[in-house]
Write a protein that binds this DNA or RNA. Structure first.
Length: 545
RNA sequence: GGUGCUAUCGUCUAGUGGCCUAGGACAACGGCCUCUCACGCCGUAAACCCCGGUUCGAGUCCGGGUAGCACUACCA
């Protein structure tokens, strides 16, 4: 193993295939690549691996780029979301860099020459076995593998006379090019996360490198050729690739590129939250959480997959959450900005074992980052939710962004997601007409209607101006607190009548909110205003009795 | 079946031979705060897969089991 990369510029790539929405595990792979690149002042490339023409899904490419863009994973070279988007709202893709094209389906000519090189050097051969023949062979021989032991029994250029091969080729017979794996060799792969991994070449099969049917290479060939041509220094990818890493090493060698072969790092997998196994789309549906960054409408199979963005997640929360699933800093820090991650990230602090997807912790991360956003920003995000909820029940307040921001300021600390704000704030926008059974039972006493009558009478004496007044004071512990003028009006009255603060205030709260919940009562009356507050109390007295 | 990878609280993890009567976070539970519900704060419970070996000393190193996962396509 040569340690040749110390002098080389760090260049990493994220190379998804456009077969659907980008899985959250793929997002994490992209993230780790990005963090590694940024930390080393290197380049982050994006290449589309669309060598399987049958699995292409329209829109997947745009989806991938939009998802990375949303998350703040920036692409230096290759395909990326263009900065200036067109007016029709559709994502514009731009290609940057001098190593293009960056879609494998557009690199056919390039692969031809390398397939030829392998054929000429005897590292590969042409095979005519049809899929049906191979299938029959597998049925016939258990554990059949196309390799040194079996290749001489198959229909290929190793077993057929050259003229016959040529004749078949001339006839336009479909064929594939297979890599000729030499048997009985221990292949060493140096993995940055796992150390030395040794696999004997006997268990490797003669992988298909190129198929004439669609004139495209397979992943294995395209990946090696592109990484070489694009001067990739480190291949950071999922653990599912570890078993084929020795094959890749053999390919680099067959091309004579072993001196510039990238270093490998195989990341642990993201597992299902319950049970075992790789996290899949089905787990998300089953357990009720997104497995994709963005919502995706699959044109091919008509399915719709929910996304983190649409579920109210903030990109910085998704990043932080994902970063810690399989990686941990040197201290106890859990909250990281992207810049901090770039500074702290290190491949040798990546875990070796798979990480169960802990959706509950994801919520907590979102809660943390939600608190950091300004009320105005959150209002911007909340307005669409509000509009949907209020579609046939318009309210003056719903159009007042300043007011919405203020309301959010009172309630954001109790939610994990922007859409949840509705459950916490709905009574500000829509007066209650129903009252929560449990709250009523516990907090609405026999005397409550009378208390409320008296309270209305008392509050009517407060001027519109005083209604909204508050001042700073200190509590018994000497801490600065905000006290509302209404406190000075209501509390002495309760004390004088010996009603009990809890009894009166909770009944009052039920009138305004419809249940025993919500922010401090004077914050509510301040927002509702004198007229609306009194209206609600009168209505409640009438309704509840 | 074969090959490889992995193995610390329910979950994410710290731990690189003595600082470990194993630390942090999420979740759970309890308390405080309080007009309510939350938030917040404080606290409780909770783990080194098993068996050997090396060593004065092992969660940490080695071997063997076991278990889980991944791969085993003309998919990536």
């Amino acid at each position: 193993m040569l340690y040749n990369n110390m002098e080389r510029k760090v260049r990493v790539r994220f190379a998804p295939s456009p077969t659907g929405a980008l899985h959250i595990g793929g997002v994490r792979t992209a993230l780790y690549n990005y963090l590694f690149a940024r930390q080393h002042g290197g380049d982050m490339l994006l290449r589309i691996e669309d060598t399987d023409s049958t699995r292409f899904v329209p829109g997947a490419e745009e989806y991938i780029l939009e998802a990375l863009d949303w998350l703040g994973i920036e692409i230096d070279e290759g395909l990326r979301a263009a900065k200036s988007q067109s007016t029709n709202g559709k994502l514009q893709i731009e290609a940057v860099g001098s190593h293009g094209p960056y879609r494998q389906s557009e690199r056919r000519e390039i692969y031809h020459q390398y397939v030829k090189q392998l054929l000429d050097s005897g590292h590969a051969y042409i095979a005519f076995d049809t899929p049906e023949e191979l299938e029959a062979k597998r049925a016939e021989i258990p554990n059949f593998q196309y390799d040194a032991r079996t290749r001489m029994q198959m229909r290929n250029s190793l077993t057929m006379p050259a003229e016959e091969v040529q004749a078949l080729l001339d006839k336009g017979e479909k064929y594939v090019v297979r890599f000729k794996v030499e048997p009985d060799e221990d292949v060493h792969v140096h993995d940055l996360i796992r150390g030395e991994v040794v696999i004997n070449s006997n268990i490797l099969d003669d992988k298909v490198l190129y198929k004439s049917a669609d004139d495209l290479p397979t992943y294995h060939l395209a990946n090696i050729v592109d990484d070489h041509l694009m001067e990739v220094s480190h291949v950071i990818r999922g653990e599912e690739w570890l078993p084929s890493a020795p094959l890749h090493v053999l390919l680099y060698r067959a091309f004579g590129w072993q001196d510039t072969m990238p270093q490998f790092a195989h990341l642990p997998l993201l597992l299902k939250p319950d049970g075992n196994g790789k996290l899949s789309k089905r787990d998300g549906d089953r357990l009720g959480f997104p497995v994709f960054p963005l919502e995706f409408h699959n044109e091919k199979d008509g399915t719709v997959s929910s996304g983190y963005r649409e579920s109210g997640y903030l990109p910085e929360a998704v990043i932080n959450f994902l970063a810690l699933l399989g990686w941990h800093g040197s201290g106890d820090q859990e909250l990281y900005t992207m810049d901090e991650l770039i500074k702290e990230f290190s491949l040798d602090r990546v875990s070796k074992s798979g990480a169960k997807f802990d959706y509950e912790k994801g919520k907590w991360f979102n809660h943390q980052y939600l608190q950091l956003r300004s009320n105005e920003e959150l209002a911007e995000m909340f307005i669409p939710v509000l509009e949907e909820k209020m579609s046939n029940d318009k309210c003056q307040m719903a159009n007042d962004k300043t007011m919405i921001a203020k309301i959010i300021g009172l309630t954001k600390d109790r939610v994990n997601f922007v859409p949840e704000l509705w459950e916490q704030t709905n009574f500000f926008f829509v007066a209650p007409t129903e009252y929560d059974e449990k709250s009523l039972k516990k907090r609405w006493k026999e005397d409550s209607p009378r208390h409320m009558q008296e309270l209305v009478a008392l509050l009517e004496t407060v001027s519109e101006e005083d209604w909204h007044k508050s001042y700073e004071t200190t509590n018994d512990d000497g801490n600065a607190v905000t006290r509302w003028l209404l406190d000075d009006v209501v509390m002495p009255w309760i004390a004088e009548k010996e009603y009990g603060v809890g009894i009166v205030m909770n009944a009052f709260r039920i009138c305004l909110v419809g249940a025993a919940r919500g922010p401090h009562i004077w914050e509510i009356t301040n927002i509702l205003g004198k007229e609306e507050t009194l209206r609600r109390v009168r209505f409640a007295i009438e309704k509840i009795g």
